[in-house]
Design a protein around this nucleic acid. Structure first.
Lengths: 153, 153
DNA sequence: GTATTTATGTTTAGTTTCTAAACTATTTGT
DNA sequence: ACAAATAGTTTAGAAACTAAACATAAATAC
């Protein structure tokens, strides 16, 4: 009887944990739903800024690698990267040795946008961290890493 | 010199924290991108199952409340709820005292889908928890709650 | 009581973000 | 040399919204 009550309470707590995580995901998703301006690039849609973020400051990455990083199809990448607005931000270069392949990298303007987004991102993350105490931060970040590792399998 | 190196390392660690959280969000998002079957309801898109989840097992909630819960416009709710497939899962009832308003609730079939989704969700969350030790779980969940509280402001 | 403002929900056209599939070249494997 | 696999492109379509316009009804102001 009492045991059943405790069991039931335990289940309800677990349900709440799952629900809270879902809630956090949803709230974070909604924060980035609208076009925003980063650097001198004009308003960029979420997908555009994610693409710029995934390209990064490297020399150039394959279109297929970019698709992998973003978890979308190659076709989606082609569409994003070749649209008019992105032409100023993303440079496409034939691969040096494989003539099927295309390398993408950021223009100077694209790098500005990347850095501006990074700054905003860090600032926001810092706000999140300021809600937690140092021990909590340490453990939270360790948990995030563990969960990421699990999910990548 | 050395101080600058340490400072730089500290910043890089912080950047990694932000990046890891972003990565987790993205991976979780991708896990639920495709239609899935819950209960006897046939394949439901992410948006449909989220709507069912948000309606819950209550007696009936306002369309506008549902829009609030999901963080979308009223128009979006109307479109989701009135589409043919959802007619079997979601019941719409005039509000008892306010003739402008509509209450939405789940049919029996909708409740089946709700429960099936809940079970799957719990199972998945349990898998996540199994990557962490009890102390980590406790702190992680506390952090999630704190962040949720912050984001709701 | 009456006029004005606000609120509920619906409809419509448009944008964003993909997907699958078909296709063209190119590269790799046998 | 030839078949299979791969890189990327193109196209049509689906999902998931948005804003704005609209029709009623309810609340508020006077």
């Amino acid at each position: 009887m009492d045991k059943n009550k405790n069991q039931s309470k335990k289940l309800n707590n677990r349900a709440r944990g799952s629900h809270n995580l879902g809630r956090l995901i949803m709230q974070l998703q909604q924060l980035e739903r609208h076009p925003r301006t980063f650097g001198e690039a004009g308003a960029l849609t979420p997908s555009e800024i994610h693409t710029i973020d995934a390209i990064g400051l490297e020399h150039g990455i394959l279109m297929s690698e970019l698709a992998d990083r973003l978890g979308v199809t190659k076709g989606a990448i082609t569409q994003i990267v070749t649209r008019k607005k992105m032409k100023e931000l993303v440079k496409r270069t034939p691969h040096p040795t494989d003539s099927r392949a295309v390398l993408v990298s950021l223009t100077e303007k694209g790098k500005d946008a990347y850095r501006a987004h990074e700054t905003l991102h860090q600032h926001f993350y810092q706000q999140l961290r300021s809600q937690l105490d140092p021990k909590e931060i340490e453990i939270f970040e360790r948990c995030i890493e563990k969960l990421n590792t699990f999910l990548e399998k």
